[in-house]
Amino acid sequence: MDGTIGILSQVAFWGLYSGCIYILLATGLNLIFGVMKIVNFAHGEFLMLGTYITFFLFVISGFNPYVLLVGSIPILIIVGVIVERLCFRPILGTGKLNEIFISLGLIYIFQNLVALIWTDEWRSMRSPFADILINLGPLQLPLDYLIIITVTAMILVSLYLFLQKTALGRAIRAASQNRRGAMLMGVNVERVDMLTFGIGAGLAGAAGTLWAVSGQVFNPYMGSIPAIKGFAIIILGGLGSIPGAIIGGLAIGMVENFTAFTLGGSWKDAVSFILLIVVLVIRPTGLFGEAEE
């Protein structure tokens, strides 16, 4: 125990860890928003599906759960593509709030489908590295958290490379900057929509795997609150901006944990929204948001 510094840096570390989950959610939401200009409130259900898929693949195969990212990400990409095709494409360009309303329907469908198949009991799993501790200066940390943070960074770097270096990535960026322009340049925006939605869902799936591996419990209803916070993050960080999502995710992770540390755990959820409202009162377009469209 070397006093306050040790404690504060430990709280900061937990903030960093929970920030990782938020960053993956918010990046996906922002990618989708950038291209399609819609918000998927059912994004947390992809997180929830990710935890369940990881859990059952783990039970069946016994593989290292980090390897199971190879399973959860592609499965969620496929789920995302299907959801985009069936639910979001038909309402693109209709009423302003329709995508929020349709997300409500999707939330009910996903949560209860999972509950129907796998019951709504809480579940948890244990990582094979659970007992390994690493010494880092004043902190003694389980290896899992370091892996989780590294994996998140790797996913973000690969996403960056994908968006910068590949033709598909460039098409996504083009559609995100100017949808009509991209269409005129011969980009098949409908395909880009589907792909982007899939990638967004895949990122949520990865977050689901990391959630389960860290030993946190999950049930079919666990996704809604993290996703709503993910949405608060992209408003804070600026709609459509991926660096904004990363900074915002970290910020919310930190703020939440320091609030739990000072004000107590019951304010943990409320504080993100207080922050959001304060920011929006000062800047109605969000911290890094562009001015009116």
């Binding site: 918000v39 949405f231 408003i235 993100s272």
Partner: peptide
């Protein structure tokens, strides 16, 4: 606070407001 906001922001602010009020009450 809401009249100046876009729809999505408005939805979020109202949602968050319900969470904040419940926390305050308890």
């Amino acid at each position: 606070t809401c009249v100046r906001l876009r729809e999505w922001f408005l939805a979020m602010v109202t949602f968050g407001f319900a969470v904040i009020i419940q926390t305050l009450i308890v």
